[in-house]
Amino acid sequence: MNVYKEKGVVGLKAVTPGETKLHSTAKKKRGFWATFKEQKVLYGMSIPFIIVVFIFSYMPVWGWLMAFQNYRPGKGILEQKWVGFDHFVALFSDEKFYQVMRNTLAMSFMGLIVGFTVPILFAVLLNEIRGSVFKRTVQTISYLPHFVSWVVVAGIVTKMLAVEGGAVNQLLMGLGFTDSPISFMSKGSWFWTIVTSAELWKTMGWNAIIYLAAITGIDQEQFEAAKVDGANRIRQIWHITLPSIAPTVAILLIMSIGHLISIGFEKQFLLGNPLVVDYSEVLDLYALNYGLGMGRFSFGTAIGMFNSLVSILLLLLANGAFKKFAKQSIM
C-alpha cells in the first residue's frame, strides 16, 4: 500500500506485487553505488588495511608450492624438483602424525568448551554485581593475565605445581588429600588439563570483555518490564540476557571452530618436557620439530598447508550450520 494525496485527500493506494518487486530491484541496484558515494571516505580509509592483509595473508600462499617440491635453499622456487604429493603421503603415513592430531584435537576441544563457556558465565555474573567499584576491580584483575607472556605464565604454573615447595602440593597435603607430593608435570594424563587451566586463567577476563559490551547494549526497559511481571534475576538472565547476546556468541563460536586445530605451540612447548612429549606435541610443534628443525622445509610446508585447509573447511562447515539452523553467519 502506498500513501497518496489528491486534492487535499490523503488515502491509501494498492500496489501490485510486480510494482513492489520492480521497486525493490531498483533499490538493490542503486544500493551499492549510493552507499559507496556516501561512505567513500571510509572506503578510502580501508584501502591500507586491505593492502596489509593482501601482503601478509595472501601473498605467502605462493609459498605453498614448496609442499609439492623437494625444496633446497639456494635455488628459485620454480627451479626446485617437483615431487607431487609425496610429502602429503609421507605425512599421512607417519604414525606420529596421528598422535599429534589426537593431542591437538583433545586440547582444542577442551579449550573450546571451557574457554568459551566460562567467559560467558563470568560476564553474566559480573554484570549482575551492583557495586560499581567492586565490579571494575574484579574486571581489571581478571583481564590483566592477558598481558602476561606465556613464558611468565609457564613459569608460574611450573612453580605452583612443583613437587618441592609447590603451592598446590602443599595445599593438598595440608588438607589431607595426599600424603606425598604429586609430580603433576611428569604425568602425561594431567598435561591436557594443566594446559587448559592455564589458558583459561590467562584469557578468561579478556574474552569476557566482548560479552560484557554486548550485555551493556541490551535495552534496560526489557529488564524493567520483566521485573514488573515478577521475573527474578535468574529468569531475567535466561529470557533476556542470554537471548540478547546469542548473535555475539554464535559469531565468536564460529570463529573459534575455524581455529580448532590452529592452537599454536607456545604453551605446549613451554609447559611440556620429555616425560610428557606423547601428550604435549601438537600439529604446529610437529611442523617445527620434524619440518623446519630437520631442514625438511617442504614437509613442514605440507603440514602447514594441511592445517590451513582444515581450518578453512571447519570455518565453512560451522558457518553453514549456524546459518541454516541459527540464522547467524559471518559470511
Rank of each mutant, 00 (worst) to 15 (best):
residue 104 T to M: 05
residue 112 L to N: 15
residue 83 V to M: 03
residue 116 F to R: 03
residue 77 I to P: 01
residue 59 M to K: 06
residue 81 K to M: 08
residue 66 M to D: 02
residue 61 V to G: 06
residue 76 G to H: 15
residue 111 G to F: 06
residue 63 G to S: 07
residue 58 Y to A: 02
residue 119 P to L: 04
residue 86 D to E: 08
residue 82 W to A: 08
residue 71 Y to P: 00
residue 61 V to T: 10
residue 71 Y to A: 02
residue 64 W to A: 08
residue 108 S to P: 14
residue 58 Y to R: 03
residue 99 Q to I: 12
residue 57 S to A: 12
residue 114 V to R: 01
residue 78 L to T: 08
residue 96 K to P: 06
residue 128 E to P: 15
residue 78 L to M: 12
residue 80 Q to N: 08
residue 88 F to R: 00
residue 77 I to E: 05
residue 79 E to P: 10
residue 128 E to A: 15
residue 64 W to Q: 10
residue 123 A to W: 00
residue 101 M to G: 09
residue 59 M to L: 15
residue 91 L to M: 14
residue 61 V to D: 06
residue 55 I to Y: 02
residue 106 A to D: 04
residue 92 F to Y: 14
residue 67 A to K: 00
residue 75 K to N: 10
residue 99 Q to D: 12
residue 98 Y to E: 01
residue 85 F to H: 09
residue 113 I to F: 10
residue 128 E to C: 11
residue 101 M to Y: 08
residue 79 E to Q: 14
residue 57 S to W: 13
residue 60 P to M: 06
residue 86 D to N: 08
residue 80 Q to P: 00
residue 84 G to N: 10
residue 125 L to Y: 15
residue 73 P to C: 08
residue 108 S to F: 11
residue 89 V to M: 07
residue 86 D to W: 07
residue 126 L to E: 10
residue 90 A to D: 02
residue 88 F to M: 02
residue 99 Q to E: 06
residue 115 G to N: 07
residue 71 Y to V: 01
residue 94 D to R: 13
residue 110 M to T: 05
residue 118 V to R: 01
residue 114 V to F: 13
residue 127 N to R: 15
residue 98 Y to L: 02
residue 92 F to V: 03
residue 96 K to M: 07
residue 95 E to G: 12
residue 105 L to E: 06
residue 76 G to E: 07
residue 83 V to P: 02
residue 123 A to R: 00
residue 118 V to C: 04
residue 121 L to P: 01
residue 97 F to Y: 14
residue 62 W to V: 15
residue 62 W to A: 11
residue 107 M to D: 14
residue 75 K to G: 08
residue 107 M to N: 14
residue 110 M to Q: 13
residue 101 M to R: 14
residue 116 F to P: 02
residue 94 D to T: 02
residue 96 K to D: 11
residue 92 F to N: 07
residue 89 V to K: 07
residue 124 V to K: 10
residue 128 E to W: 09
residue 101 M to T: 15
residue 103 N to H: 09
residue 101 M to P: 01
residue 84 G to R: 04
residue 122 F to D: 00
residue 85 F to R: 03
residue 95 E to R: 13
residue 110 M to K: 08
residue 76 G to Y: 14
residue 65 L to E: 02
residue 73 P to N: 04
residue 127 N to K: 13
residue 102 R to Y: 12
residue 68 F to V: 01
residue 64 W to L: 07
residue 68 F to P: 00
residue 88 F to V: 00
residue 98 Y to H: 02
residue 82 W to H: 03
residue 84 G to E: 08
residue 69 Q to H: 04
residue 60 P to H: 13
residue 73 P to W: 07
residue 114 V to A: 10
residue 84 G to F: 05
residue 59 M to Y: 12
residue 75 K to V: 11
residue 56 F to M: 00
residue 68 F to K: 00
residue 90 A to S: 06
residue 65 L to K: 11
residue 90 A to Y: 02
residue 57 S to D: 06
residue 91 L to W: 03
residue 69 Q to I: 02
residue 72 R to I: 13
residue 80 Q to S: 04
residue 97 F to C: 01
